[in-house]
C-alpha cells in the first residue's frame, strides 16, 4: 500500500471510532456513534445560561408578543454576527420601560432558549447522521480492502483490470471519507457557536435588568 493510502486508511479506521473512545474517557450517556471531542450534552439546561427572572410557565408564551416573536429568529440567525445580535438585544432591553423590563426580557429569553434548543437538537441529529454515514463508508472501505487482498492472490489468473477498478473505487471512497473527516471539527463546532451566542444574548439581557 502506498504511504498516502496508509494514512488515509488510518483516517478511515479512526472515523469508525467514537471521539470519546479515542480520548479514553467515555462520558455517561454518550452514544457510541458520537464523533465529536465536545462532550455529548443533548439538551441545553436553562441554568447554564440564565440566572435572571423566572421564565413564563407556559411554553411558547413569547410568540404572543409580536415584537419578541419577530426578534427571536433575527437574534439567532447565524448570518448576523454574534456581536451585532448582542447589540440588538441590548437595544431592545434598553427600549423596554422599566416596569415592563423583567417580564419582557424573560419573555425574549424564553424565545431564544426554546428556539436555540430546537436548532441545537437538529444539529445534534445531523452530527449523528454524519457520523453514521462515515462509519458506513469506513465499513465499505474495510470490505473493499479485504476483497482486494483476495484479488491479489488471483492476479496470476488474469483479474488485473477488475482489481484496478476495485482499487480505484476504494481510493475514491477513501478520498470522500477523508474530505468529510476534515469537516468534522467544523460540524462539531456548530452547536458550540450557537451556545456561545445564546449565552452572550442572555448575559446582555441580564446586564440590563
Amino acid at each position: 500500500m502506498k504511504p498516502h493510502h496508509a494514512a488515509l486508511l488510518a483516517v478511515a479506521l479512526g472515523a469508525a471510532l467514537p471521539a470519546a473512545a479515542q480520548q479514553g474517557t467515555p462520558q455517561k450517556g454518550t452514544p457510541t456513534d458520537w464523533p465529536c471531542v465536545q462532550v455529548y450534552v443533548p439538551e441545553l439546561s436553562l441554568g447554564q445560561v440564565w440566572a435572571g427572572p423566572a421564565l413564563p410557565d407556559e411554553a411558547g408564551a413569547w410568540r404572543d408578543d409580536p415584537e419578541v416573536a419577530r426578534l427571536v429568529p433575527k437574534l439567532l440567525d447565524d448570518a448576523v454576527p454574534a456581536e451585532d445580535a448582542t447589540a440588538r438585544a441590548e437595544d431592545f432591553a434598553k427600549g423596554v420601560p422599566e416596569a415592563e423590563r423583567e417580564r419582557r426580557l424573560a419573555l425574549l429569553f424564553q424565545g431564544l432558549f426554546e428556539r436555540a434548543g430546537v436548532e441545537r437538537g437538529n444539529m445534534f441529529a445531523g452530527i449523528r447522521r454524519f457520523a453514521d454515514k462515515q462509519k458506513a463508508l469506513a465499513d465499505r472501505i474495510a470490505e473493499a480492502n479485504a476483497k482486494l487482498r483476495g484479488m491479489r492472490l488471483d492476479v496470476a489468473a488474469g483479474s488485473q483490470p477488475e482489481m484496478e477498478a476495485a482499487r480505484a473505487e476504494r481510493d475514491w471512497d477513501l478520498r470522500v471519507l477523508d474530505d468529510r473527516q476534515r469537516l468534522l471539527p467544523q460540524v462539531c463546532e456548530q452547536p458550540v457557536l450557537l451556545e456561545q451566542r445564546l449565552f452572550a444574548l442572555g448575559r446582555a439581557l441580564q446586564g440590563n435588568l
Binding site: 450534552v41 439546561s45 436553562l46 441554568g47 447554564q48 440564565w50
Partner: peptide, 9 residues
C-alpha cells in the same frame, strides 16, 4: 445542585 442544570453538567 443547581436548579435547571443537569447533574452531569
Amino acid at each position: 445542585e443547581i436548579p435547571g442544570i443537569a447533574g452531569e453538567a
